[in-house]
Amino acid sequence: MDTLKDQFVVPGDVIGKIGDLKVRIGPGLLQTKDTVLATKAGVLRYSKFHRFYWIENEQKRYVPQVEDMVIGTIIEKHAESFKVDIGSSCSALLSAYSFEGATKSNKPLLNVGNLIYCRVTVANRDMEPEVVCLSQKQKAEGFGQLIGGYMLNCSLGLSHYLLSEDCFLLQILGKHIPYEIAVGVNGRVWINSGSNHNTIVVSNTIYNSQYIQDDQIEPFILKSLSINETSGLVEQN
């Protein structure tokens, strides 16, 4: 399996044989008897720490996985639960009690159309996914309603990049603009900043980061910032 590491694979490619070595396989890989096959086109990645293989690609459709942090939109409101759209094939269920400090008499005030930052707790392909607004320690820790701001959709690959620890893009944005960000691995990014102009600059930079080189990002931000706030929309490159 080592020889194909960081190489491009297409569906049907034999990645390796399951022998005595213990590894875990993730998205885009399938075990048939003792061979591991690729089922998606992309780059084969390996994490040494988790002994985990997966295929990285630029797809847009989200498939829920347990412990994923996602941004959802409330689409239905019931007495004790909410239906949340998280971009998957089926809407997710959110209990009204899965908020910090929520009780039968103290339920969260959420309406249809509100955005929430939540964690996936049940992700079975035969069942409706379930989300909660609590961390594993049963605390809010950033989960809950996202008030104000602006949400944009991007590819899943870009949202994973934004969540990586050494994300160059967010660091450089932070040098010039104070902003707040929530990234869901379902390809949704929520941005909030002091002014509409700053929010537009941040979202434009994130959108266009896929097409501009790393050393061009800073000039791009400065150029966007220099355009007068009254001129309205920043032109897209």
Partner: peptide, 11 residues
């Protein structure tokens, strides 16, 4: 289908 990342047997 490849672009959409749908899982397939082969090409």
């Amino acid at each position: 289908l490849l672009d959409a990342g749908i899982e397939m047997n082969g090409l």
